[in-house]
């Protein structure tokens, strides 16, 4: 069973059948078998995130899984961005954001950053800055200091939001991973904070640690 096996990958909407060895990484199948070299390899350890692609809508590091494990999966790589409805036959708003906000210098990390950004905006169209930073925390950039990458993703969120407001959500809803319902609800007009994909309420705030604390067990709050 070290022999090659046949797998089917749907990459950017096109179905491909490739023969791979069990040890072939997904990133190598994408780059070498399918010749889609936009997905980069920046490290050997899984730290850098340059190889990030969306597998069935979720961001994953394509250097940390074997191609056989993606058999039957839908993969989106950076090459597929301009074919998404939101790109409107031009650059996707995320790509436009990286251009407008100077979100790259050498560009090596950019494909991974774009895919991480895409995954974030699919889930959470109006992210706060800390949510953007969390979403790209698995992606390393050695040029920008991240500041402009965060702005680039904010730019895309604003752009998509503005279009959704104009088009009644048609563009956003047509972008693939988001359901028609989510797009149609037009988060902008919800009017409630932390609603419509907003951040979960989280506990564990330790702002009070400078105080002495007491615990009175047995009393209900």
């Amino acid at each position: 069973m070290t022999d090659e096996t046949e797998i089917t990958l749907t990459v950017n909407g096109t179905e491909h059948t490739v023969e791979v060895e069990p040890r072939r990484l997904l990133v190598h199948a994408i780059r070498e078998d399918l010749d889609l070299t936009g997905t980069h390899i920046g490290c050997d350890t899984g730290n850098c995130g340059a190889c990030t692609v969306l597998k069935d809508g979720e961001p994953i590091k394509s250097c940390l899984m074997f191609a056989t494990q993606a058999d039957g999966a839908e993969i989106l790589t950076v090459e597929g961005m301009e074919d998404l409805p939101a790109a409107d036959d031009d650059l996707h708003p995320l790509q436009e954001g990286f251009r407008e906000e100077h979100g790259l210098q050498c560009g090596y990390c950019t494909p991974g950053m774009l895919m991480a950004g895409k995954a974030l905006l699919d889930e959470n169209p109006e992210p706060e800055e800390d949510e953007i930073r969390e979403a790209i925390s698995g992606n390393l950039c050695r040029c920008t200091g991240y500041q402009n990458i965060v702005r680039s993703i904010e730019y895309a969120a604003d752009e998509l939001d503005a279009r959704a407001a104009t088009d009644g959500g048609a563009v956003a809803a047509a972008d693939g991973e988001r359901s028609a319902d989510a797009g149609g609800e037009a988060d902008t007009f919800c009017g409630l904070e932390d609603c419509c994909g907003g951040p979960d309420a989280s506990g564990g705030d330790h702002a009070g640690d400078q105080f002495e604390r007491e615990y009175l067990g047995g009393e209900e709050t």
Binding site: G204, F211, E212, R213, E214, Y215, L216, G217, E219, E220
Partner: peptide, 20 residues
Amino acid sequence: QRALGDAAERAGAVRRKVTQ
């Protein structure tokens, strides 16, 4: 100490902050 503090609070113990 922090984990125990949170655990106690989540178990229903009342955390009272007292300024020193």
